[in-house]
Amino acid sequence: MKKCATGETEWVESEVTAAVRPWLELRRPLPEVPAELDRRILLAAAVRRSRRIRRGRWLRITAAAAALMVMVGGVLYFRGEPVPEALPVDHEALALWDWTGVEQAGYNLNFELDSRQAELAYLAMR
């Protein structure tokens, strides 16, 4: 051992280890633990183990149920989305492309009549 600056004793581990070595040979026998203590402690360990396993099982079931609920909720939420409405049909424009022959002939005659009337008007002015 030695004294450090503060006056406190500083022990040298190797010296202490060497001093204690012979004493370690004086092995005191290990005592027997009473059987009742063994029984209680092993029983407590078994009970706690079962409790831990059950708790773990419940946690897994709850987590699975929560995941399932999220999935079902997501499916229901996105399933009912309405189809976007089609653009309004311009019936008049379509109608121009869907003429029957009679309608076409009638249009042509009217066009010719208007043209003749325009010519007569022009000649009358001259």
Binding site: R28, P31, I41, L42, A45
Partner: peptide
Amino acid sequence: DEGAFSVLYERYKRQLYR
């Protein structure tokens, strides 16, 4: 594992008891 703790217990119980 049921038997694991009892092995551990037997290994150290007497030292702890002393």
